[in-house]
């Protein structure tokens, strides 16, 4: 039973060309998402998660640029489309809940009208009244009182604003929603409710979701598959159980070892030493080697190859490289 692939990213490179050097924010990243999947992308601050998301939306901010690679969305390679063509796909095929979006709602406009505006702009409705009607429906979907369409942002709590933002992302019924840190800054109880809402909508509508976060436990709760990103690279991917119960990459292991849990026996937290690298001059070879307790001489010299660990799972680490690859290297 092969389900349709919604998103396929192949060997994508996105660099920022700054005055003080080239920031290799996304460096040779491959990723795919099936229809109806909730896929998590985890990584530390600055590892390039948002940049990857921007690339999928084809809206990398300058001085950033897609350098090479392919992004295929519902069968269309969007890397080669014109800005005009991309604008049509954006929001209708793929939409995004931006990091901190709930704090950038227009403070002087009713939240319902802000959604109506998105619908109008994309020609999904022909007048504001119709837009408001759809906004009410969307509010019901995300668990808000439909009467709230008449509220201004400051009249809503953080959790409610985040629901508005989610409703906005769903407005044009896209195939894929990218949620960039949708719950940071919210209380745990609110966070849990918001994640439930996202998960429920995703199950009901069959939409695909790319959840971007640095919060590992959150990933364990909601996602089907996980991509682990470190310093601009995907170092490991697998389904959620595999990542949490049998992590392969030392970085993934480290992350999991450093996360506290309130259930089960109290284990010792093992801190990951050091700091993530500056992406203007990442370390040669494997980018994780300065913090890795398994580092071997080869890790400092050559980038690790991709080793398959399942039909669509892989790890990029010299520990798992086949003998013949090592010999060549």
């Amino acid at each position: 039973m092969k389900t349709a692939t919604i998103l396929e990213v192949e060997n994508l490179k996105v660099y920022y060309f700054t005055q003080r050097g080239v920031v290799r924010a996304v460096d040779d990243v491959s990723l795919e998402i099936d229809k109806g999947e909730l896929v998590a992308l985890v990584g530390e601050s600055g590892s390039g998660k948002s940049t990857l998301a921007y690339a999928i939306m084809r809206m990398v901010p300058p001085p950033g640029r897609i350098v090479s690679g392919r992004i295929v969305l519902s069968g269309i390679d969007i890397t080669s489309l014109s800005e005009e063509e991309v604008r049509k796909l954006r929001w209708s095929k793929v939409s995004m809940i931006f990091q901190g979006a709930m704090n950038s709602l227009n403070p002087v406009m009713r939240v319902g009208d802000q959604i109506a505006e998105v619908l109008l702009y994309h020609g999904a409705v022909y007048d504001v009244e119709e837009g408001r009607k759809i906004a009410r429906e969307l509010f019901k979907l995300v668990g808000l009182d439909p009467e709230r369409v008449m509220s201004y942002p400051h009249e809503l709590s953080g959790g409610q604003k985040q629901r508005v933002v989610i409703a906005m992302a769903l407005a044009l019924n896209p195939d894929l929603v990218i949620a960039d840190e949708p719950t940071t800054g919210l209380d745990v109880t609110t966070q849990a409710k918001i994640m439930d809402t996202i998960r429920d909508i995703q199950r009901e509508t069959g939409i695909s979701v790319l959840l971007i976060t640095h919060d590992l436990p959150l990933v364990a709760e909601v996602s089907d598959r996980v991509y682990v990103m470190y310093a601009g690279k995907i170092v490991e991917t697998g389904d959620v159980d595999k990542i949490f119960y049998t992590p392969q990459h030392p970085y993934t292991k480290g992350l999991i070892g450093a996360v506290p849990s309130h259930i089960g026996p109290k284990k010792r937290l093992i801190a990951l030493p050091g700091e993530p690298p500056d992406l203007r001059s990442p370390p040669p070879g494997c980018r994780f080697h300065p913090r890795c307790s398994y580092a071997m001489p080869i890790c400092k010299r050559k980038e690790p190859p991709r080793t398959g660990t399942g039909p669509r799972d892989f790890v990029e680490c010299w520990l798992y490289a086949g003998e013949e690859v090592k010999k060549v290297a």
Partner: peptide, 15 residues
């Protein structure tokens, strides 16, 4: 109880 039960758990099966 509500607070504790909302904390995400780094254990997919338990979750």
């Amino acid at each position: 109880q509500a607070l504790v039960s909302s904390i995400p758990v780094p254990d997919p099966k338990y979750a």
